[in-house]
Design a protein around this nucleic acid. Structure first.
Lengths: 197, 197
DNA sequence: TATTATAAATGAACGTAATTCAATTATTTG
DNA sequence: CAAATAATTGAATTACGTTCATTTATAATA
């Protein structure tokens, strides 16, 4: 890594620490500068402003998220198994990275600027991937032809976001993976009486 | 209304206008004071701080939300019809109150302090109501006995929050009620092949 | 290596906005 | 009507993001 990028990385490391302890509002540039052992002005050489620095944080982590998901999906056949694995992995990743979760779920995801960030581009891979799985399922005939695949994706992402957000707001006091089976079952079969998988 | 509460109401009215035009961060006390025609210091007589004022805003609106939902559910029999109506009404309310939506969905719902507010207490009525509907459905036998009713609630609230949040982030450029049928169908039947309702 | 040119880093200074508080004005009470 | 109490005010304080003139480090050149 070049010398310039090294210092940039130094600042990001410090920002991660500060931003995931407090939130955006309560984190200060001077705290970050101190932790990174640079002057406050230096930060503005590398980032347009506080928000720009904030949005630079989850880029790498989100790439990891997608890369490792791909690995976990390898060798799994069958649409339902893939969806189950997707749900499991999604919850697992946040369980292992609660700081990332707090920043992404409680602050970035609800910010209008987020859609324009690099982290969002990475995150889009994730949502594209689940759409692909749904599409394949429909072609294979295990998913009804008359369901809207985009709404299906929203169902899956919706419950996952809700479950993770709730867990974070409750201070991560229980295991977010606890109900992964129930979540999968509901998504796959709905709440009505079913003839089984 | 007492004279004291009148002035408090005056401040809240002004705050609603200012906070739903800009967001929390970009709204200033001085803007609100000007609109309410009081001095900045007066605001601190009625509210602990900016956040406290912010959280006082959605209390009344949320009460309306619950009250009107109850009205819409009147005279509907059958669990599935009730769930459909709940979903329709939820989307409808945000369609009619986008300013409230932006404040509640994008700012309050992801704030740890929200759970301690009066608005949250009102909102809880809403989530209690859907749980009740689900419970009744299970007792009547139209909902599978083996589904977790709490996770079922999370499924419904999850997709609704996701749909509304997406719509708000996209600048309310389409009709959020557009896919209400698809959403209901998916929640009720899941994505797997089904023998029909 | 010495000199110059360019880039990076600094932190004091500035502007903005939340919050406080001593002084002022309005209202109630005896 | 005077004294006591409560409400209102806005200037002062404080805190923080951002800028910029100056200094320090690095690279280029001869």
């Amino acid at each position: 890594m070049s010398k310039k990028n090294l210092k940039k990385q130094q600042i990001i490391e410090a920002a991660i620490e500060v931003f995931s302890k407090n939130n955006f509002q309560n984190s200060t540039i001077s705290q970050i500068a101190q932790k990174a052992e640079v002057a406050e002005g230096t930060i503005y050489q590398y980032f347009k402003n506080k928000e720009d620095l904030f949005f630079s944080i989850p880029v790498e982590k989100t790439k990891d998220f997608c890369r490792e998901l791909e690995l976990h999906l390898q060798g799994i056949t069958g649409t339902f198994s893939n969806i189950r694995k997707f749900i499991w992995y999604y919850l697992y990743f946040f369980k292992m990275n609660p700081g990332y979760g707090r920043t992404l779920m409680l602050e970035m995801r609800v910010n209008k600027s987020f859609a324009k960030t690099k982290a969002y581009d990475s995150f889009k891979n994730l949502t594209d991937r689940i759409l692909e799985i749904i599409k394949e399922g429909q072609e294979e005939g295990v998913i009804r032809k008359d369901v809207n695949i985009f709404i299906t994706r929203q169902l899956i992402l919706g419950i996952l976001e809700h479950v993770v957000t709730r867990w974070l707001l409750k201070g991560e006091t229980y295991d977010v993976l606890e109900h992964y089976q129930d979540v999968s079952d509901l998504v796959l079969h709905g709440i009505g009486l079913s003839k089984g998988e």
